[in-house]
Amino acid sequence: VTTYKLVINGKTLKGETTTKAVDAETAEKAFKQYANDNGVDGVWTYDDATKTFTVTE
């Protein structure tokens, strides 16, 4: 299990959150659900070296 980070650069929501997941794909699903629940819809990137997803509106 690895800790992944999400950086949110939204129009109305900015911040960070983390999740523990077995792989990046599982973390991405959780983060996309989180973003959707919070009304954030943007461009996604992922940096494997830092295990960090970024979504920018």
Rank of each mutant, 00 (worst) to 15 (best):
V1S: 10
V1F: 14
V1E: 13
V1C: 05
T2M: 10
T2H: 08
T2I: 12
T3V: 08
T3G: 05
Y4A: 00
Y4F: 10
Y4C: 01
Y4K: 00
K5F: 06
K5L: 06
K5Y: 06
K5I: 09
L6W: 02
L6K: 00
L6Q: 01
L6C: 04
L6A: 03
L6T: 01
L6P: 00
L6I: 03
L6S: 01
L6D: 00
V7C: 04
V7G: 02
V7S: 04
V7A: 05
V7T: 10
V7Q: 08
V7R: 07
V7H: 06
V7N: 05
V7P: 00
I8D: 01
I8S: 03
I8C: 05
I8F: 14
N9V: 12
N9F: 09
N9L: 12
N9H: 08
N9Y: 11
G10E: 03
G10D: 04
G10K: 07
G10S: 15
G10N: 10
G10Q: 11
G10A: 14
K11W: 13
K11A: 15
K11R: 13
T12D: 08
T12V: 15
T12E: 15
T12Y: 15
T12H: 14
T12I: 15
T12P: 06
L13E: 14
L13M: 11
L13P: 03
L13G: 10
L13C: 08
K14E: 07
K14I: 11
G15I: 15
G15F: 13
G15T: 13
G15V: 15
G15A: 14
E16R: 04
E16Y: 05
T17F: 15
T17C: 07
T17Q: 14
T17M: 15
T17Y: 15
T17V: 14
T18D: 09
T18C: 06
T18P: 02
T18Q: 12
T18A: 09
T18F: 15
T19A: 12
T19Q: 08
T19I: 09
T19N: 05
K20R: 13
K20I: 14
K20W: 15
K20M: 07
K20A: 13
K20S: 15
K20Y: 13
A21H: 04
A21R: 03
V22M: 10
V22Y: 10
V22R: 08
V22H: 11
V22G: 09
V22A: 13
D23H: 06
D23E: 06
D23K: 06
D23M: 06
D23P: 01
A24Q: 12
A24H: 11
A24M: 05
A24N: 07
A24E: 10
A24W: 11
A24Y: 10
A24L: 07
A24P: 11
E25A: 10
E25Y: 11
T26L: 04
T26A: 14
T26H: 12
T26P: 02
T26S: 13
A27I: 01
A27Y: 00
A27V: 02
A27M: 01
A27H: 00
A27L: 00
E28P: 00
E28I: 11
E28Q: 14
E28D: 07
E28T: 04
E28R: 12
E28A: 09
K29D: 11
K29L: 08
K29A: 12
K29G: 06
K29R: 14
A30S: 11
A30K: 09
A30G: 05
F31H: 01
F31Y: 02
F31S: 01
F31N: 00
K32I: 12
K32L: 14
K32D: 02
K32V: 13
Q33S: 11
Q33A: 07
Q33Y: 06
Q33V: 14
Q33T: 10
Q33I: 10
Q33D: 10
Y34W: 07
Y34R: 03
A35R: 01
A35T: 12
A35S: 07
A35F: 03
A35W: 03
N36Y: 12
N36I: 14
N36K: 14
N36Q: 12
N36C: 05
D37V: 12
D37K: 14
D37I: 08
G39D: 13
G39Q: 05
G39E: 12
G39C: 06
G39Y: 09
G39P: 02
G39W: 06
V40C: 04
V40F: 11
D41S: 10
D41L: 07
D41Y: 09
G42P: 01
G42K: 01
G42N: 01
G42R: 02
G42A: 02
G42E: 01
V43W: 12
V43S: 15
V43F: 13
V43I: 06
W44M: 04
W44I: 03
W44A: 01
T45V: 08
T45W: 10
T45K: 09
T45Y: 10
Y46R: 02
Y46K: 01
Y46Q: 01
Y46V: 01
Y46L: 02
D47M: 05
D47S: 09
D47W: 04
D47E: 15
D47C: 05
D47Q: 06
D47N: 08
D48F: 05
D48A: 08
D48P: 09
D48R: 10
A49E: 08
A49V: 08
A49H: 15
A49W: 08
A49K: 12
A49L: 11
A49Y: 12
T50Q: 06
T50I: 10
T50F: 12
T50E: 14
K51H: 11
K51W: 07
K51C: 04
K51E: 04
T52S: 04
T52A: 03
T52W: 02
T52I: 13
F53R: 00
F53M: 02
F53Q: 00
F53Y: 13
F53G: 00
F53S: 00
T54N: 05
T54G: 03
T54A: 05
T54M: 10
T54R: 05
V55T: 03
V55A: 03
V55Y: 02
V55N: 01
V55S: 02
T56F: 07
T56P: 01
T56M: 08
T56K: 07
T56C: 04
E57L: 04
E57C: 03
E57F: 05
E57K: 03
E57G: 03
